[in-house]
């Protein structure tokens, strides 16, 4: 039983192999023919394809900077295919009213985390308030970190510029944000400490001029991230990070 296309009754079993691109070409075509006549398959295909896509997304790795330039340059001199005749060209972006990318769904990278807007120690209230506030704990932490000869400096994996200094002996990090453009009207930058799949808010970014913020870390904390949120802040991130630094 090699190479023979499966009978229709068994076709559906191939859905997993098809979505993993593990069917030989002939069988993939046979499965697509099956799909075309199977309305009930469409929904299953969508969900399983999204799951397979997450396997790929999980491998994200920053490409060499030159790739961006190469891609954009090549695109600029490459003609585009015309829409298929009869397809509704669509009124534009508003057709897709959900606006939430699959990769932004809490179930995706945030999992079931119910982030708490309670901020570690008294420190981040200063961050949240973004003004004077009692800086003593904050200053102590910053001094501790800067005096730690074994501290580690981490650079962003999302976005560019800025850094983070982690001191395990101080149980703290000092986050140095890059200078940032003004957020859109009604929006603000919000900082998150990520632990596993669970983000906890570290407050709003107080200044766009490369703010420097000490903050405590707890066991298992894995990254600091910045997202764009409504000006009042969010309980959990609603967008993907525009800046993120791994702690390790």
């Amino acid at each position: 039983m090699t190479g023979t296309p499966a009978p229709p009754a068994d076709q559906h079993l191939s859905i997993g192999a098809y979505l993993l691109h593990a069917l030989p070409a002939a069988e993939a075509q046979a499965f697509e023919a099956h799909l075309a006549g199977c309305e009930s398959c469409t929904e299953e295909v969508g969900g399983l394809r999204a799951a397979a896509a997450m396997l790929g997304a999980a491998e994200a790795l920053r490409p060499p900077a030159a790739l961006r330039e190469n891609v954009l340059t090549a695109a600029a001199r490459t003609p585009q295919e015309r829409p298929l005749p009869g397809r509704d060209p669509g009124p534009g972006p508003h057709r897709h009213s959900t606006g939430r990318g699959w990769y932004r769904r809490p179930a995706g990278w945030l999992a079931a985390a119910a982030a708490v807007l309670v901020i570690g120690g008294g420190v981040s209230w200063a961050v949240l308030a973004g003004r004077t506030a009692p800086m003593t704990a904050s200053q102590r932490m910053e001094q501790c970190v800067s005096a730690d000869a074994s501290s580690a400096t981490m650079t962003p994996s999302v976005g560019a510029g800025g850094s983070l200094i982690r001191s395990d002996s101080c149980d703290a990090v000092v986050v140095k944000l890059p200078a940032m453009p003004a957020p859109p009207t009604g929006m603000a930058y919000q900082l998150w400490m990520i632990k596993g799949d669970a983000p906890r808010s570290m407050g709003l970014v107080p200044s766009l001029d490369g703010a420097m913020m000490p903050m405590p870390i707890r066991a298992g904390d894995s990254a600091v991230a910045v997202t764009v949120e409504p000006a009042a802040g969010s309980d959990q991130p609603t967008g993907r990070p525009i800046w993120a630094v791994p702690l390790h």
Binding site: G90, G92, P93, R95, H96, T98, G99, R100, G101, V158, G159, A160, G161, G162, P178, A179, M180, P181, P183, P184, T185, G186, M187, V228, T238, G239, P241, I242, W243
Partner: peptide, 24 residues
Amino acid sequence: TTPLAPVPDRDDEPPPSAEALLDR
């Protein structure tokens, strides 16, 4: 150079969805 990943240039909306970007 721009220090951050792109921030939406529209003033009143969250970042455009990938679908919207593909559309454009």
